[in-house]
């Protein structure tokens, strides 16, 4: 693994160097234009040429960087996740379908839908799929000169998870932190026994009994623990043998930044994200199939 990682790191470092050289060339070109090009036409031309060459080299560096990251994700990460997750599939460019995202019942329809880093598989026999999601809504406004303009405002940037949920429920339940149900069903707000839980989450259910059936004291405690460990706006929903979990934290799950080494430490941070899935399944006891007929 270390050898493969250093190969990717070598290519990434090379692309970063090219970008730096390009950037430095741009700076030299600008300085030449400012200090020498003012009085000397030849030097002005040289300055422009250096500037253009610098920009081209910088762009080449950026493209090379993106290609390196893409290749790292498509080869190394894909292979890595398939090894550490049962039936694990990873596709850096794909994402959870909009149908599944809106199926959560609390995310409103976006005017612009983007996603990446699709990961699916089985955790302790429980099927899951997840991906980063970026949802934006279109806003039309009039500027100070009276021109109508359009802008896209982000209202969700984070990750969504969809798990198998084997507790048979006929009704719908949503446990939300600053969201509200948006799937058109007739929900009622349910107050549970835990004051802390009610402060942290708002519970909506189409039937109060379902809320108490799913949200056992242990389950509530587990949701509180998840909330403490994951800063951001959280939402959980339970319906049709599925559990949805969305976390709006303005973060990417598997980011590769410039000048951050591709090494085992970086891979470990990705592994932590997968371990979080195991923790989630275990804490919520999603792997306990006692409610399902064999």
């Amino acid at each position: 693994m270390a050898e493969e990682l250093s190969l990717h790191q070598g290519k990434k470092k090379q692309s970063e160097l090219i970008a730096i050289v390009g950037l430095l060339t741009v700076v030299i070109g600008i300085l030449t234009l400012i200090f020498l090009g003012d009085t000397n036409d030849t030097m002005a031309t040289v300055g422009i040429v250096i500037l253009v060459v610098g920009i081209i080299v910088f762009i080449v560096g950026l493209i090379k960087f993106n290609l390196t990251v893409k290749k790292f994700k498509k080869t190394f990460l894909k292979d890595y996740f398939s090894k550490i997750i049962e039936e694990g599939s990873y596709f850096p460019k794909r994402y959870v379908s909009p149908q599944a995202v809106y199926g959560s019942g609390f995310l409103k329809r976006a005017d612009r839908f983007k996603g990446k880093d699709y990961l699916s598989g089985k955790i302790d026999g429980i099927e899951f799929e997840s991906s980063d999601i970026h949802l934006q809504e279109r806003q039309v406004y009039t500027d100070s000169k009276g021109h109508r303009k359009t802008k896209y405002v982000t209202y969700f940037k984070g990750r969504i998870f969809k798990f198998d949920f084997h507790k048979p429920i006929e009704h719908r339940l949503q446990v939300l932190e600053k969201y509200r149900p948006r799937d058109g069903y007739k929900y009622k707000k349910v107050e549970l026994e835990s004051i802390d839980f009610n402060k942290k989450f708002k519970t909506y259910a189409t039937d109060a009994h379902t809320a108490f059936y799913v949200l056992t004291p242990h389950f509530m405690e587990a949701l509180m623990k998840i909330e403490q460990n994951h800063p951001g706006k959280l939402g959980f929903s339970f319906m049709e043998e599925k559990m949805y979990f969305a976390i709006n934290n303005n973060k990417s799950t598997f980011p590769i930044y410039p000048f951050v080494k591709i090494d085992e430490r970086l891979v470990d941070t990705f592994k932590e994200d997968v371990e979080m899935l195991y923790e989630l399944v275990d804490d919520l006891k999603l792997n306990k199939r006692i409610f399902k007929e064999d």
């Binding site: 507790k167 048979p168 107050e191 549970l192 026994e193 109060a208 009994h209 379902t210 809320a211 108490f212 059936y213 056992t216 006692i290 409610f291 007929e293």
Partner: peptide
């Protein structure tokens, strides 16, 4: 074994009913 599974689920429903009842009584 099927009955054992059923009774586990019935227990969960009974607990949920009891908690819902107590929550309503408390209110």
């Amino acid at each position: 074994t099927n009955l054992q599974k059923t009774i586990a689920d019935v227990e969960e429903h009974l607990q949920a009913s009891r908690r819902l009842f107590n929550a309503n009584v408390s209110r």
